[in-house]
């Protein structure tokens, strides 16, 4: 980066404010979860792991977390084939009505979440699917599908079509071309997309809130329902589960594809 001193001062001031704002809730939740007192105070009442001991005993929290994992798994397992195929098709082929199809596939982003959530609630309700977990997973998949398609198209545009032709020319039938040339080439996109889908479904709140009932609450909904005016540290300790999942996802993303992939221009 080149430039004058005033430039770095202005840039760094804004970036520092952004960094503090971004990190403050995470840091505070982490800190609060280790407090020794019954309520979160400043300065804290010493350090302890008692809230972790407490949440590990609570079966409703554990079950809610397992349900959330289930939802995220359904979402990811559906998104991988659907998004990969659509992404490759959009990136590689000259499709008729391409523009319309793109706009259509962006619907999950243009329709507000509350609209999508209520629409899916009515659809699943009519079909009698409510009260189960898999519709929540499908719903999370639908609303985040553009992320998966983006990730795949981004890596598929880097694939030289001549490679596939060369494979076919050497006698590879279509499926073999797909599995040994096309798929490996878009793999970084598939990995990025599926990690995003998993983590977004894990955190999905509004659509879960609309689609679950009291028997099958997911963890974000449970946390939301438990937030009261008095702030107790056990919620902070559960929230750390999400921070840990987030950290694992970032680590995997960085190891498998590199975080820099998000900086690449198309």
């Amino acid at each position: 980066m080149s430039g004058s001193r005033s430039k770095s001062i202005v840039l760094w001031t804004l970036v520092t404010i952004a960094l503090i704002t971004l990190s403050a809730p995470t840091v505070v939740v982490l800190g609060a979860s280790f407090t020794g007192g019954n309520i979160i105070t400043f300065p804290p009442d010493g350090l302890s792991l008692r809230w972790y001991a407490r949440i590990s005993q609570a079966s409703d929290l554990r079950n809610a977390f397992l349900r959330t994992l289930q939802v995220a798994t359904v979402c990811t397992l559906v998104a991988i084939p659907v998004g990969t195929l659509a992404g490759i098709a959009l990136a590689k082929y000259a499709v008729r009505f391409e523009k319309s199809i793109q706009i259509y596939l962006l619907l999950p982003f243009t329709i507000p979440l509350i609209g999508s959530g209520i629409g899916l609630m009515l659809v699943f309700g009519k079909a009698g699917f409510l009260g189960q977990l898999w519709p929540v997973g499908i719903a999370c998949c639908v609303i985040n599908l553009p992320f998966m398609i983006w990730a795949v198209t981004a890596s598929a545009t880097g694939l030289d079509p001549d490679l596939e032709l060369a494979a076919a020319n050497c006698g590879a039938p279509p499926l073999q071309v797909f599995f040994s040339v096309t798929l490996p080439a878009v793999m970084p996109g598939v990995i990025t997309g599926s990690l995003l889908m998993f983590i977004l479904a894990l955190n999905e709140f509004l659509v879960s809130l609309l689609l679950v009932d009291a028997r099958i609450v997911t963890l974000p909904v449970l946390i939301y329902n438990s937030i009261r005016s008095i702030i107790t540290p056990d919620l902070a300790a559960i929230s750390v589960v999400f921070i840990a999942c987030s950290a694992v996802a970032i680590f995997l993303l960085d190891r498998l594809v590199g975080l820099d992939i998000f900086l690449k221009s198309k």
């Binding site: 990190s23 995470t26 939740v29 946390i223 999400f242 921070i243 950290a247």
Partner: peptide, 23 residues
């Protein structure tokens, strides 16, 4: 900068809003 960006992005709204309640 990337990690500082993704960590809150991957944590979800409810937990982040809860963090602000604590602060």
């Amino acid at each position: 900068l990337l990690i500082a960006l993704f960590l809150p992005f991957f944590i979800g709204q409810v937990v982040r809003a809860y963090g602000w309640l604590i602060i």
